[in-house]
Each structure stands twice: as C-alpha cells, then as structure tokens.
C-alpha cells in the first residue's frame, strides 16, 4: 500500500519548550492511525504540523507525495507562499476539538464555504453535495439552522461534514470528542467509524482507548515530544513493550 503521510525527524519548539523532539511516522493510504498520549505530549502539535497550521523547526512532512509548506531546492527547504499552502490544505480535512464552526453562518453555509471560496465550485453544485454530506452525518434537517442552536455532538458532526466537503485525501481529528458531554460522544464516534469503514485515510488524536482499539490500524503512543511505541492496537494496547505506555494505559483504562 502507498504511503499517504510521511513525517521525517520533525522538531518543533515554542520558545524554550521543545514540543516535538524528532518525530518519524508513516501513515499508509486507507489506514486509520490513532495517536494516544498524556496532555502536553505533543500529539495535537504534531497533527497541526501536518497541515502547516504549525510550522516545523526541522524535518519535513509530505502528504500524498507533496512536501507540506515547503519547496525543496538542493538541500534547502523554502517556505511556500501562503496561496500555495492554502491550496495544499484543501486536500487535508481538519476537525478541531472545539468544532470552530462559523457562528454567523448557517450549517449549510458553513459546509459550502470552502468548496465555493477555495475550490471555486459552482454554488448549486456545492449545495447539492453539502446536503448529501449532511445526510451522511445524520443532520439533513438542520441545514438552515445556526451552529449555536445545535448540541455539541451535532456541531461536531457538522464540522466533519465541513471538512469532508473539500473531498480531502486525508482527515485529521484533534480530540474530536473531548469537548463533548459524555452522552454525545457516541454519535460523533459513529460518524468517524463510518468514515474509517469506507477506507478514508485518517489520523485521530483521542483519549477514547476503546474506540482506538476498535478502529485503529495503527496506534501511536506519544510522550514528551517523542513516539514511544507504535503498532497494531492488539500489541500497543494489550501488550505494550514500554513502561511509559503501560503507565499511561493503567491510568486511563
């Protein structure tokens, strides 16, 4: 299977704080990678570097064969102009912990915004596919409501539809259920599970261990800015090799 995401020796620091201390990771096309780890381990930052929301200090990331945020010439990486970066981002869907729906736009307007503005799709085409996406996440009847009138779980499902509207090759989820009331987590996980079942390439940062076990092809455990251990969920979750992983799992399971 081909490699969708290739992360090579990525370093990132905020001031004197080293958040990523050399990350190497491959994600194959059609696979689901779940990233686990304690808060502050750098997993969200790693996710944000993949669509260049955070710039890396060292190393390189490529998605579907294209270097993200930079152009290589010899042994130098030149940062791309914003226009190019924005184009790359339209191929990568990102779902935020706090949804970040646009509150002044209706659900439908939220979903068609990027296809119309960034991909220059005709509006009526975008509306048609947006309605199909809303149906897929079970919110066909909410197209004309405003985000604040929806529950957290519904808002996150709209956010997923909004990310899917760009028909991305890769979906990134940054703790998609962490801001939700416990009884609303299930409906969002159902949608993500559905996407995983259809062969969407995804990287999911989450604290839901049971969910990770169920959908992940690969589980990555991070701590202190490094990948401690990775492998199939059966190995990493049930028979971890590293003490650090065992200690974390014993606290959350």
């Amino acid at each position: 299977m081909s490699v969708m995401v290739d992360i090579r020796s990525v370093h990132k620091s905020f001031g004197s704080l080293d958040v990523l201390k050399g990350i190497d990771l491959e994600v194959r096309t059609g696979e689901v990678t779940v990233v686990l780890g304690p808060s502050g381990s750098g997993k969200s930052t790693l996710l944000r570097t993949i669509n260049h929301l955070e710039k890396v200090d060292h190393g390189a990331i490529s998605v579907d064969g294209a270097l993200i945020g930079y152009r290589r010439s010899g042994d130098k990486l030149y940062e791309l102009p914003e226009r190019e970066v924005l184009k790359q981002r339209t191929r990568i869907g990102f779902v935020f912990q706090n949804f970040h729906l646009f509150p002044h736009l209706t659900v439908l307007e939220n979903v068609i915004e990027a296809p119309v503005a960034a991909l220059k799709r005709p509006r009526n085409e975008a509306v048609d596919s947006a309605r199909r996406l809303l149906e897929r996440v079970g919110l066909a009847d909410k197209a004309d409501t405003y985000p604040r009138q929806l529950s957290g779980g519904q808002q996150q499902r709209v956010a997923i539809a909004r990310a899917l509207a760009l028909e991305p090759k890769l979906l990134l989820f940054d703790e998609p259920t962490s801001a939700l009331d416990p009884e609303l987590v299930g409906e969002v996980l159902d949608v993500i599970r559905d996407l995983a079942g259809q062969g969407t390439t995804m990287i999911v940062v989450t604290h839901e261990i049971a969910f990770a076990r169920e959908i992940a092809d690969t589980v990555v455990f991070m701590a202190d800015g490094r990948i401690v251990e990775q492998g199939p969920p059966g190995e990493v979750l049930d028979a971890p090799r590293e003490d650090r992983t065992r200690a974390f799992l014993s606290k959350v399971l």
């Binding site: 669509n51 339209t90 760009l166």
Partner: peptide
C-alpha cells in the same frame, strides 16, 4: 473574534481576504 475561527478558515484553505471579509469582520 475567537482565534479558532481564523484557524478553521485557514484549515479550509480560505484566502486572507476571504477570511477577513467573510469570517472575521462579520463577527
């Protein structure tokens, strides 16, 4: 305007002008 709004717009590939006109200023 919440910083997350701008990030969401960037993640969706919206241009600087579009972000300002459509997302930031109305809010």
């Amino acid at each position: 305007v919440d910083r997350g709004q701008i990030e969401a717009a960037q993640a969706l590939g919206l241009s600087r002008l579009r972000r300002l006109r459509r997302i930031v200023l109305p809010q």
